[in-house]
Simulated scan of single mutants.
Amino acid sequence: MHAHSPNVGGFSFKRVLLGLILSVIFIHFNFGQELQDGQKRWSSDNKLTLDDFKIKVSDTNNEVAYSQFMMTHAISGLDFMKKNMNQKVENIFLGNASYIDTTRVEDLQKQIDFQQMQFDLAEIQARNFRKSALKDKGQLTKGFDIVNKINNEIMAELTAMRMTLIRETDSGRNEEKLAEWKELIATKLKELDEFRFENKEKIKLQK
């Protein structure tokens, strides 16, 4: 007897998992340059809109909407002296690689909000990355093994978080679970507020 994967939005849960594993890219990036066409940095007051999704129609075998994000970092060995790593890690939405099928979505804003929730999950992990990088900055003098370790942990956790969100909310259709997740996300973002990209103030970590 074979076990069957639960369906999410009408297709294999394993297929969703593979898509999400590939949907968050983490690369070393040289900062100081403008965002490229279709890219959008996470912001608390500049949410995703329909125009941010550059692909408007998808294959009918796919989900009705899909978002891809990119976390970038510019951490160097000299950063062991820094008191704030927030500007060293970015969380970016890739509009040119994200779609929303306007021919199949009944409530566009609701689906956009659901994709925003996933962007928010990525922001939680970006803030956790900044916090961990600051906490372990002393190890940077020994090489970048610590950055790779943090990266692997952050990406694995984010994939698991997105999958749980999709499964528990039935791809955004379960209103009760959606409300629970929105509250959880808001709480986590607030807890990690000092690690937002915009904050350049010195951060003193609790021992």
Rank of each mutant, 00 (worst) to 15 (best):
M1Y: 10
H2S: 11
N7T: 13
V8P: 01
G10Y: 03
S12D: 13
F13P: 05
F13V: 06
F13L: 11
K14E: 10
K14M: 13
V16C: 07
V16Y: 03
L18F: 15
G19I: 00
L20F: 11
I21Q: 14
F26Y: 10
H28L: 14
H28G: 11
H28F: 15
N30L: 13
G32W: 04
Q33M: 15
Q36Y: 11
D37Y: 08
G38I: 04
Q39T: 15
K40N: 08
S44T: 07
N46Y: 03
N46G: 03
K47G: 03
D51G: 07
F53A: 05
F53R: 06
F53H: 08
I55M: 04
I55F: 00
K56S: 12
K56R: 14
K56N: 10
T60A: 13
N61A: 14
V64S: 09
Y66N: 13
Y66V: 07
Y66C: 11
Y66R: 09
S67A: 11
Q68C: 03
M70V: 10
M70A: 09
M71Q: 02
A74N: 15
A74K: 12
I75M: 07
I75H: 02
S76M: 11
G77H: 10
D79M: 14
K83I: 06
Q87Y: 11
K88I: 03
F93Q: 05
L94R: 12
L94E: 08
G95R: 09
N96L: 13
N96A: 10
I100R: 10
D101C: 04
D101H: 01
R104N: 10
L108N: 09
L108V: 12
Q111S: 09
Q111G: 06
Q111K: 10
I112V: 09
D113Q: 07
F114W: 09
Q116P: 08
M117E: 01
M117T: 04
F119W: 01
F119C: 08
D120Q: 01
E123M: 02
E123W: 02
I124E: 11
Q125K: 10
A126R: 11
F129P: 07
S132I: 08
S132A: 14
A133P: 03
L134V: 03
K137C: 00
T141P: 04
G143Q: 05
F144Q: 15
D145T: 14
D145S: 14
V147R: 02
K149R: 13
K149C: 06
I150R: 00
I150A: 00
N151W: 06
I154G: 05
L165R: 02
I166A: 07
I166W: 01
S171A: 14
R173T: 13
E175D: 13
E175W: 09
E176I: 06
E176T: 08
L178W: 11
W181L: 02
L189N: 00
E191P: 03
D193Y: 07
D193H: 03
E194H: 00
F197L: 14
E198K: 07
K200G: 03
K200A: 04
E201P: 02
E201S: 11
K202E: 06
K202T: 06
K204Q: 01
L205D: 00
Q206D: 13
K207T: 07
